[in-house]
């Protein structure tokens, strides 16, 4: 489904059937001693149930802040959050925690990057799963335990009865990430965030976890936002991809379109720097020359211009806007987009 058709359908349907998630010009700034960090700087997109959006970008490009900002999981103090996040038509920016508590875990949930630190070390795994269930679903203890058991088996954990009684430190990283997924999907959320769910894991289990996420997303007809710095991860697993740079979406297209017709020089650079299997699991993207931009005093004009091979004077003075979606639903922000010929050199995976 292209962005254009989403708009059409939402125009004719009543508000209750509004798109699941509409993010509009979302900004998230942090006030720090050194200045204002523009971690997310005007991001817009729409996501329907059953679809997966991949968010890709280098370390520090604002992917984590974006997903947490959508979910409302930001620090209490020194944060400026503006724009709009509509979940089934309900505005969440500015919503009270008492309202958000109803959404968190129930309507939207998140799988975090590091399963080693994301589980409470002094609480049994079973309790950590049933806690959310009982919070939202008003079910008995027994019922919650049964559900937890079923959840653990559905995320592929053998001997679930025994595992329920264990503590996180008694499990491997992959196992813990499965538990995290079980916790996230427990109440049947409509929207699932997965923030680099495999970066902290062994290469061998990375694919398993990604496959698990994908099957769960399909089976439960969830919308999923898959955050990663690895274009290779999102290639076969997403419907759409948004490429982020310095807090902005610089290119966005349906996955197939993006890989066959990438237009932004940054996407090109990202693609050519996909880590090889032989690299250590948390290798940073160093192959793009230059440093990620300073978010406090960003460069003028195109934020990528100091590192861009095609930059001209125009790039350095005028910031390119994100183009309107073309017939394929492809958007990008570049004065001199990469031409078709460049595709071959970048190499399509």
């Amino acid at each position: 489904m292209s962005a254009a058709s989403i708009k059409e359908s939402s125009a004719t349907t009543p508000a209750s059937e509004a798109p699941l998630l509409v993010v509009n010009d979302l900004k998230t700034y942090f006030k720090t001693d050194r200045g204002l960090v523009r971690a997310v700087d005007g991001v817009s997109f729409t996501l329907e149930r059953g679809r997966t959006l991949g968010v890709v970008g280098e370390s520090g490009s604002g992917k984590t802040v974006l997903s947490r900002s959508i979910m409302g999981l930001l620090p209490k103090r020194d944060v400026e959050r503006s724009g709009s996040v509509k979940f089934e038509g309900v505005e969440l920016v500015g919503a009270d925690t008492s309202l958000m508590v109803e959404y968190w875990g129930d309507q939207m949930a998140m799988v975090f990057q590091d399963p080693m630190t994301s589980l409470n070390p002094v609480m049994r795994v079973g309790k950590q799963i049933t806690e959310g269930l009982r919070q939202h679903l008003d079910i008995s203890k027994d019922h919650a335990n049964q559900t937890a058991l079923a959840l653990l088996s559905s995320v592929g954990i053998p001997e679930p009865e025994r595992r329920l009684r264990q503590y996180p430190h008694e499990m491997s990283g992959g196992m813990r990430q499965r538990v995290m997924i079980a916790i996230a999907i427990a109440c049947g959320p409509k929207l699932l965030f997965a923030d680099e769910p495999t970066t902290a894991l062994d290469v061998t289990v990375q694919a398993q976890i990604l496959d698990l996420l994908q099957t769960q997303q399909r089976d439960r007809y969830m919308a999923m936002i898959l955050v990663t710095h690895d274009l290779g991860v999102v290639a076969g697993r997403t419907d759409e991809i948004a490429v982020m740079y310095a807090g902005k979406v610089v290119e966005k297209a349906p996955t197939k379109v993006l890989f066959s017709n990438l237009r932004h020089p940054y996407t090109e650079a990202l693609l050519s720097s996909i880590p090889k299997i032989s690299d250590p699991s948390h290798t940073r993207l160093k192959t793009i020359g230059g440093r990620p931009p300073n978010l406090i005093n960003p460069p003028s004009g195109c934020k990528f211009s100091p590192r861009c091979a095609y930059a001209t004077d125009k790039c350095r003075t005028e910031e390119p806007p994100l183009s309107a979606p073309d017939s394929d639903g492809h958007q990008f922000s570049c004065w001199f987009p990469v031409e078709l010929s460049a595709k071959q050199t970048a190499g399509v995976r």
Binding site: L73, V101, E102, G105, A109, T117, N120, H136, I183
Partner: peptide, 15 residues
């Protein structure tokens, strides 16, 4: 500041 506190929050557990 621990991650598991964010996890709990993301589960919708009251403050």
């Amino acid at each position: 500041q621990e991650d598991f506190i964010t996890t709990a929050k993301a589960k919708g557990i009251p403050t």
